[in-house]
Design a protein around this nucleic acid. Structure first.
Length: 434
DNA sequence: CGTCCACAGGAATCCCTGGGTT
DNA sequence: AACCCAGGGATTCCTGTGGACG
């Protein structure tokens, strides 16, 4: 009873605390505002390409590129929505579960054809099979997530698509992820699909933040996909301030609770991160949450700086926690070795320690080839810094350093039951030959 | 100046999972 | 039950290489 009562009053207290951010939703990545500041040029450019849809023609395929948080996805969705509203058709912009894709809205057609706007994120739907299966589902087909041969999936999608006269605009966000998995064949098929269709037409908008992506593309796909290109330059600090001020205005009841330096500081930090607007919004949101938590009346620059730390910290902890066991074992080996090898350790050294850890934790020992790849993956995540160096007479190897402070992540990893068994291990003294 | 280390990292193949069809 | 199919992780086999040493 006593506990209950104190819990009640705890909630009361929390609820009575004045909320600094009364509408946090508008600060989330998923939120698309009505206005997109500093993107008028790109909006017009995109609209001028897609306008041929109104004449019943098939718009050119478009390649959109720019760094993360520069508004690519927001602009594409914004223009897509406008077109579907005007011509009539179906607008899908959210991923769906199961077999029932749900259009965000359907508008009645004013022409003898309709527009289907389909947004897909290739980070999630990252293979030829899955991409075609998802597309098929949008046209009412139920295709199992696995099992069929790919050409059957393609045929099913194709005939469902071609049943009606319509223009289908397929947005492939993070299209570079397809290539990485070696499933770029699907791009070739999709870019050629129009020559086989009788009723429907397809145009593709590919979005990426990898500027080199297009160079690695099959030349036939490249010329077809890159008929038009739209570039999204990063925002500068001043533009970020506009964007943030707009959203902050929606998120807070009154702007006076934001100290004057806050928005410029968030923007400055975000500008350093290649002008990422999402970063600015995150900083602001977390700063607001921190202020709320300490019952502060205002959001101050101090909160922003704390938020910056916090975001980075959380990201790392999350990544490390969800690492597969094998990667954890490698990372743990690196942590142990770092003490003895402050000038950087080599793949071979890591591998030896790793083998011991595997024995202790009853894990399978993977080959050095695989470990080499895992180290590269950890490097990509920013947890390790690995660079290939030549030590002349003593061979060529990766020189590995920790990319993040050790103490915080060591504790996180030791929560893993496999790693727990290994905490007492001490690496043998390494004899340096040079 | 050639050698040769200790790997890097590409390619083909295998193995396994989760599903299908006959 | 027997067999096909896609995809992901791992293995096997391999060729390539920067530069200190001799």
């Amino acid at each position: 009873m006593k506990n209950q009562k104190s819990l009640d009053s705890l909630f009361d207290k929390l609820l009575n605390t004045e909320q600094i951010l009364s509408n946090k939703e508008v600060l989330r990545h998923s939120y698309t505002p009505e206005q997109l500041p500093h993107r008028q040029h790109q909006i017009e450019e995109l609209a001028s390409i897609l306008v041929s849809a109104f004449k019943g023609e098939t718009p050119s395929n478009i390649f959109v590129y720019g760094k993360t948080g520069t508004g690519k996805t927001a602009v594409v969705k914004y223009v897509g929505k406008a077109i579907v509203k005007k011509i009539g058709g179906h607008y899908f912009s959210k991923p769906f579960q199961g077999y029932k894709p749900d259009p965000e809205f359907v508008s009645t057609t004013h022409y003898d054809y309709s527009v289907w706007f389909i947004y897909m994120n290739c980070e999630v739907v990252d293979t030829q099979y899955r991409l075609l299966a998802k597309l098929g589902e949008y046209f009412g087909q139920s295709i199992p997530l696995t099992g069929w041969p790919t050409d059957k999936v393609y045929d099913t999608f194709f005939s469902a698509l071609d049943q009606k006269k319509r223009l289908v605009v397929i947005i492939l966000d993070e299209i570079d992820k397809l290539l990485r998995k070696g499933s770029d064949e699907v791009l070739y098929n999709l870019t050629r699909i129009n020559s086989d269709l009788t009723n429907a037409r397809v145009s593709i908008i590919g979005i990426t933040n990898d500027l080199n992506f297009i160079e690695f593309l099959d030349p036939r796909v490249r010329s077809s996909l890159g008929e038009e290109e739209i570039v999204f330059p990063p925002y500068d600090a001043v533009q970020l301030q506009d964007i943030l001020a707009q959203r902050a205005g929606m998120a807070c009841r009154n702007m006076e609770i934001i100290e004057p330096g806050v928005i410029p500081l968030c923007s400055a930090f975000a500008a350093q991160e290649h002008g990422d607007a999402r970063r600015a919004l995150d900083l602001f949101r977390v700063a607001g949450e921190l202020a709320e938590r300490e019952r502060s009346k205002k959001i101050s620059e101090k909160h922003v700086r704390e938020a910056k730390e916090r975001i980075e910290q959380d990201r790392i902890v999350e990544v490390v926690k969800t690492l597969p066991t094998q990667s954890k074992l490698i990372l743990y080996s690196c942590i142990l070795l770092e003490k003895y090898e402050p000038s950087g350790m080599s793949t071979g050294e890591v591998y030896n320690v790793y083998k011991d850890l595997c024995k202790l934790s009853c894990s399978e020992v993977l080959t050095q080839r695989r470990i080499s790849d895992i180290i590269s993956e950890l490097d990509m995540l920013g947890i390790l810094n690995a660079r290939v160096v030549s030590k002349g007479r003593y061979g060529r190897t990766k020189e590995i350093h920790m990319g993040i402070p050790v103490t915080q992540i060591k504790r996180v990893m030791e929560q893993d039951r496999k790693i727990e068994r290994v905490t007492t291990y001490v690496p043998p003294i390494q004899h340096k030959l040079y």
